Amino acid sequence: MAYWYNIATQQVETDENRSRNDDVMGPYDTEDEARGALASARENTEKWDAEDRAWEGKDEED
């Protein structure tokens, strides 16, 4: 079973009750992973931004 995180309702959804709009993130293997979707997305964005700055030769404080 796949799990989804609905950013509009802030609820975890399954395939059976998943919203069919752009407000869902996933799929995730577990309910806990879906519940942590926003934190995971934030961590990934910060990591990728740091990698971009390093690749461009910029300090993190620029």
Rank of each mutant, 00 (worst) to 15 (best):
residue 6 N to G: 00
residue 30 T to Q: 02
residue 18 R to C: 05
residue 23 D to G: 10
residue 1 M to W: 01
residue 58 K to W: 11
residue 32 D to W: 04
residue 30 T to A: 08
residue 48 W to A: 06
residue 17 N to G: 08
residue 9 T to Y: 09
residue 42 R to T: 09
residue 15 D to R: 14
residue 48 W to Q: 14
residue 24 V to I: 14
residue 39 A to P: 00
residue 42 R to Y: 10
residue 17 N to Y: 06
residue 35 R to K: 15
residue 33 E to N: 06
residue 28 Y to Q: 03
residue 56 E to V: 04
residue 25 M to W: 08
residue 3 Y to K: 06
residue 2 A to L: 13
residue 29 D to V: 06
residue 57 G to H: 12
residue 62 D to I: 00
residue 6 N to Q: 11
residue 30 T to E: 01
residue 33 E to G: 09
residue 6 N to I: 11
residue 20 R to N: 12
residue 48 W to H: 04
residue 54 A to C: 03
residue 14 T to W: 00
residue 21 N to Q: 10
residue 42 R to D: 12
residue 11 Q to G: 02
residue 55 W to P: 00
residue 49 D to K: 15
residue 1 M to T: 09
residue 8 A to W: 02
residue 6 N to C: 01
residue 27 P to C: 04
residue 7 I to K: 11
residue 14 T to N: 02
residue 12 V to L: 08
residue 24 V to Y: 00
residue 43 E to I: 10
residue 42 R to A: 10
residue 19 S to D: 09
residue 57 G to D: 05
residue 33 E to M: 07
residue 60 E to T: 03
residue 22 D to R: 13
residue 7 I to W: 07
residue 42 R to S: 14
residue 24 V to D: 08
residue 56 E to T: 03
residue 28 Y to H: 05
residue 8 A to Y: 01
residue 8 A to D: 10
residue 52 D to Y: 11
residue 62 D to V: 00
residue 42 R to Q: 15
residue 57 G to C: 03
residue 54 A to M: 08
residue 16 E to V: 09
residue 37 A to C: 02
residue 34 A to I: 05
residue 8 A to P: 00
residue 47 K to Q: 14
residue 6 N to P: 01
residue 59 D to H: 05
residue 48 W to L: 13
residue 17 N to F: 08
residue 55 W to H: 05
residue 60 E to F: 07
residue 11 Q to C: 08
residue 30 T to S: 12
residue 8 A to H: 11
residue 3 Y to D: 02
residue 5 Y to R: 06
residue 13 E to W: 09
residue 15 D to K: 10
residue 21 N to R: 15
residue 30 T to P: 02
residue 3 Y to Q: 00
